[in-house]
Simulated assay, not measured.
Amino acid sequence: MIRVALTGSVGMGKSTTADFFRDEGVPVWDADAAVHRLYAPGGAGVAAVAALVPEAVRDGAVDRDRLRAAVLGDATLLGRLEAAIHPLVAADRAAFLDDCARRGEPIALCDIPLLFETGGERDFDVVIVVTAGPELQRERVLARPGMDEESLARMLARQMPDHEKQARADHVIRTDRGLDAARDEVRRILAQLRGMAEDA
């Protein structure tokens, strides 16, 4: 089975691109969705967050707004939180990949925003980076509820520059040339990957 990582900076169109792969029949794991599951009632991440930020847990689930406020108020908290949550996310991803392999899937894709920043690319056979021009990126991010210039700057400061991600990728998909062009690129890459899977 070919393990594919899809990554890209905030606002580049990664989720839309992941949906294009899903539409083509590729099983997709989403890191953000995994965190939501971990933070939901009964999720494995609730106890980990409660141990670090008790006030961020309400009604058996993590209140993401309270957690975000706590992180903004404590420069050391984010690192400690990541140390507690990242292993749980990695276990969720490993379970997904194991399940795909058991089912005989030729390709499995994982949508991971901070792939290079966490050294996660080593766990994959192919890395695809999604990109767009900086003005469109900014426009997309600032259109999201609760986002402002300061929040965008903080997010970008935590992420590897886009040009470095592109240089380290096996494939690059641009989402600023229209959805049809991006979908065509997904299909082109997928044809290559399916050929690789058949040869393996």
Rank of each mutant, 00 (worst) to 15 (best):
H86W: 13
D123H: 00
G120D: 04
D162W: 03
R102I: 05
P27G: 12
V130M: 03
A18P: 03
I85Y: 09
D23A: 15
V89N: 00
A40Y: 07
A143S: 10
A50R: 15
A108N: 09
A44V: 08
S151Q: 13
V89Q: 00
A83E: 14
L78C: 04
A108W: 11
L136M: 12
V89Y: 01
F20E: 02
D63K: 07
D170Y: 05
G73H: 13
R140D: 06
C100F: 11
L136Q: 15
P145Q: 02
A94C: 00
A5L: 03
A197I: 10
L114V: 09
A95D: 15
P54G: 07
G79Q: 08
P87H: 01
L78S: 06
T17D: 10
I112E: 05
R144K: 02
L114A: 04
R122W: 01
A61H: 09
A56W: 05
L179D: 06
D30E: 01
A132F: 03
W29V: 05
P87E: 04
V126L: 13
T17K: 12
V130H: 13
E82M: 13
V57L: 12
L142E: 01
A132L: 08
A47V: 13
L88C: 00
T17H: 06
H163C: 05
G146Q: 05
V126F: 15
A40G: 12
D111I: 01
F21T: 10
I85W: 15
G11A: 13
L67K: 07
G13P: 08
E135H: 12
G79N: 09
Q159N: 03
S15G: 03
I173G: 09
L115Q: 02
V62I: 12
